[in-house]
Amino acid sequence: MEMMRKERIDRGIKVRTEGIYAISAMKEILYLLGPRLLLIVGVLLLPFFLELAPYWKRVINIMFVYSLLALAFDFLANYVGLVCLGGAFFVGVGGYLSAIFNSYFHIPIYISIPLATILGAIFCTLTILPCLPLRGVYFAIVTLMYPLLATRVIEALNILGGTNGITGIASFPHEYVEQYAVIFVMLICLFGMRRFVNEDIGLVIRGVKDNDQAVRASGISITYMKTLAVFIASLMCCFGGAYIAHLYMWAGLSLFALDFSIIPIASVVIGGGGTLVGAVIGSFILVPLSEFLRFFGTFRIVIYCALLTTFIILKSEGIMVYLQRKYHQFERWVKV
């Protein structure tokens, strides 16, 4: 009997080596930049296509927010080693802060969002700080408590509008501003983060995940590095929260909804952990899908779970890892 085996061969282009580029021909430049351009141009043109389907505009805006959250989760989980289930907490803090600035203090939207992003991230980082020595599942569970706790506090003390939330928040001046604001931030974060994790400081942060003892033995405080990482991740999430508050012109308890913690994780699983782009692609698939399934009413969750499970069984590595492999390698069957 003849046995067959799948053989994988790298494409004969030298630029593949991570970090070291030696570009010589137009073809190679295209090979490298092609996928990136496709993503950027596609995303930038999206608002025009949406003119044909106005109902989806809001879904797509939320989708970009989710891709930011997924990006933050992927960064923390796969580059720093912190599995943070507190995404909803970051979103809520960002959203409520922007609401307070805009509705109570009448700070205009183009200042309230950046201010809420930065101050929110500082606040989130400070509150997460005591949990940083925790590892693995313990850190995950404790961070999961944060959004629940925040909801209860607001409910019990009846502050910040209590269960009614804060209303009267300014909306975006124009639909295109609304759409492109989140698109630009998403693109900047995506490419910025990809750059960051390969910078020297990014390598140090990755070292914390790989081998934290050796990082400490190198005279670097791992608490400091983790704090920095949480700050960066919460910047992205707090922006998302502030954006949503202005999008809905309302900040309520649903900003702390667990969806904001869980869907990004599913997106990272689907898209492929540790690739950053995968997180974004994953939410591009999951969020519209989940909206589409609304059509099925409560049955939606069943279909959603069935699809997710099937996907994880069939392509457990994630879409991006799979695509990158296909893109960079030939495959052929050879005799053993």
């Binding site: 390598l203 140090v204 070292g207 790989d210 990082v215 670097i220």
Partner: peptide, 13 residues
């Protein structure tokens, strides 16, 4: 070592 990094990148830290 930092397994996911090339040898020389191990020293960056």
């Amino acid at each position: 070592p930092y397994y996911t990094l090339p040898a020389f990148k191990n020293l960056i830290i």
